[in-house]
Simulated assay, not measured.
Amino acid sequence: MDVTYAEVGATREGPLPAGYLHVTRRARLTAGFAEAADALAHWRPQRGAGLRVRTDAERAGLGVEFASGIGAGPLRLWVPCKIVWIEDRPGRFGFGFGTLPGHVATGEEAFLLSTDAEGAVWFEVRAFSRPAKWWTKLGAPVARLMQARVTDGYVAAMRGL
Rank of each mutant, 00 (worst) to 15 (best):
T4V: 06
L113R: 11
A18C: 05
R25F: 02
I86A: 15
G119F: 03
T4R: 05
V125A: 11
W43C: 07
L21R: 10
A105Y: 01
G102E: 01
R159Q: 15
R44K: 14
G73D: 07
G102T: 02
Y5D: 04
V79N: 09
P131G: 04
G73E: 06
R126E: 10
Y20C: 08
F123K: 02
S114P: 08
G102I: 00
D2M: 12
V142K: 08
L138V: 15
L77P: 01
S114H: 12
R52S: 15
L138G: 11
G139I: 07
A10R: 04
R76H: 01
R76W: 04
G48M: 04
S68P: 01
K137Y: 11
A31R: 02
D2H: 13
G107M: 01
E58A: 15
Y154W: 15
T55M: 04
A49R: 01
M158C: 11
A156N: 04
G98H: 04
G96D: 06
P90Y: 00
E118M: 07
F93Q: 02
E124V: 08
W134M: 12
A57T: 00
D152M: 01
R28W: 00
G119R: 07
R159T: 12
L113H: 13
M146A: 09
Y5A: 10
V104M: 06
G71S: 09
G96E: 05
A132M: 01
R12W: 05
R126Q: 11
F66P: 13
Q147R: 05
G50T: 04
E13W: 08
G139E: 02
H22S: 02
G32W: 09
G98M: 03
P101L: 03
G19S: 03
H42S: 08
E13D: 15
T106L: 05
M158E: 08
G91M: 02
R92S: 12
A148V: 14
R126W: 13
A18Q: 12
A110Y: 01
A143C: 06
Y5P: 06
L21I: 07
